[in-house]
Design a protein around this nucleic acid. Sequence first.
DNA 1: CTGAAAGCGCTTACAG
DNA 2: CTGAAAGCGCTTACAG
Lengths: 367, 367
Amino acid sequence: MTDARRPSASLTIYDVARRAGVSIASVSRVLNQQGSPRPETRARVLRAVRELGFVPDGAARALSNRLKEVVSVVFRRGGEAVFEGEGQSLLFTDVINRGIEPAAQHRGYDVLMSSVELHAQHAAERLSALAAKSDGLILHDRILPAAGVAKLAKRIPIVTLAGTPAPPAVNVRSDNEAGMRAIVRHLLLDHGYRSIAYLSGHADSPDNLARVRGFEIEADAAGAEIFAGPAWEGNYSAAGGAKVVTSLLAAGGKLPRAIACANDQAALGVIYALAERGFEVPRDVAVTGFDDIPVARHLQPPLTTGRQPIWELGTTAFDVLYSMISGEPQTEPEVVLPVELVVRGSCGCVPEPVSPPVLARADGEAR
Amino acid sequence: MTDARRPSASLTIYDVARRAGVSIASVSRVLNQQGSPRPETRARVLRAVRELGFVPDGAARALSNRLKEVVSVVFRRGGEAVFEGEGQSLLFTDVINRGIEPAAQHRGYDVLMSSVELHAQHAAERLSALAAKSDGLILHDRILPAAGVAKLAKRIPIVTLAGTPAPPAVNVRSDNEAGMRAIVRHLLLDHGYRSIAYLSGHADSPDNLARVRGFEIEADAAGAEIFAGPAWEGNYSAAGGAKVVTSLLAAGGKLPRAIACANDQAALGVIYALAERGFEVPRDVAVTGFDDIPVARHLQPPLTTGRQPIWELGTTAFDVLYSMISGEPQTEPEVVLPVELVVRGSCGCVPEPVSPPVLARADGEAR
DNA sequence: CTGAAAGCGCTTACAG
DNA sequence: CTGAAAGCGCTTACAG
């Protein structure tokens, strides 16, 4: 397989030097603002650069510099079809990514976005390829087990998102436990509900584990009746949330007074399934989410939830990675961002008037 | 501003060669599957590579190869706040990007995703920086005027998305004109409506221009009464679509029997505003969209629209760019993908039963 | 089949 | 302040 190479005699720093009548060293200096070239020299170089439309080759700079000024972001793709349900479920990852990028640009870095198939085992190959092309890696959840991260992190700076601390990698996450505790306290203490369930996310996700923990601490402390067990296992999706309720009701199970869902997606499903069976939220059952995705405030009733600083998760991830690339010693294995309790109507509070009217209905996840 | 450099004595091909007891040339050959090394040699190299965990440096390869195996994708960001309305309006760009990426991976390429602020004038700087780091560029709509594209395309292979042909760049788009013609024919011929409006997108967008053209051709041919003019100018957003209807009605204007919207977003807004004023779709007014975004099939009534092959737009863009990078001569200035008429309920047809029920309401765009 | 060596396009001590 | 030269880590003719 011989793929043709691009011939294109592209212009180099030598062309610029020749045109400006100086050495390549001088060209490089004015381009990189090193030393203090004579104004005359500077002007001639700049003119030559402009006239030629010269852009220094990134690969050559990287090789000479030992700095590519590129970081890679890796996330899982697939599972869902492209069109069905992707809108909401991918939003979380996308918003984080959109936070990473401007932060990188701010430092003159560019971002290689790379997905790995959901069920692909060869994530390692992908990571090697990316490591070759970048100065550091940002790994979303479920890309590599902690042990693998720790190992790879010896070769290249790594920041994990919503993962597990795996030094020398640094993990950036939000304070799930405190966020869930605030939600549960609001439900049990402010509203005085006496029975409550936690509808879980992926059982093994670090975020989910932290939320369960927060839930249990406060539910126990308040002495509330806890609904738990396999019947309450969701998977972060609306379909999963709906299914939990549907199955429970079909089996003749009892509902708690409040359901704290692992995330907003699941809460959507729960509210839908409840409505379908004639239960009204929050009158019959209070429901809360987690994340504060865009749609949350536009639900009927508006969703009470824990607001994750999603965009900031992205910018923070880059900033931390940048400091690692710059050789600053990392003192902490984790950076934890605060989660804010957002009280709206689904918990039983009277919602504030919502400003813009609802324009459309979102895509329902296939079940 | 002296940023610290990473010291890390990373291992090189020399380390591998030494360990394997061969020359660096041999290491390179087995790694790149060039020539036919003796099995013995091959085995030793492979073992050394494995034991050392060696990954060849991308920058060095790129420099030597004159091939970075990286392409850049550039799109506009911003305008909207992150949380409000971003969900749907960014979907189009995101889905295209998600089509680009696997196509690139398939060829061993990686993708630099880079946004440019909506109102930034310095897109040129951004593009230079990216050009330095990649073998080719994929530009979304409204990044650079055609003249600028044509000029830049002399330096580096460029594919534009939904733009205007600007050789030597190649434009990839879908057949907006044919798609809109099919929609209008369906409305006027199949349903027999006698009056119709085109609610436009950004006036200067090539996509919009093509859709207007398709609209006019068929509306004229059918001899329908056409509602047009500044009152019908939208901006591809739901808010824009709603505003057109609201303003029209407030001014005591008359409604046509059918409204063909420039895209689905706008159709959402139109349907919402119509419902708010007591008009029922499609009974009172038929409404159609364009794009077939995920939510389209879940609207009430389900939206009749023109399905753009969004994902394929992405994969095609990469494939074309790849062939340019590989030095294959480009015979066509454009690649046009077909648009499929998707008939659902909003045009007046009886919709097929929709499978999954609606789970939630989407975020309304702020107005 | 394999190795010595040149070269890819930059940056950066080192002299001057 | 400026230039000649070495070196970044690879790939690839060119000999052998």
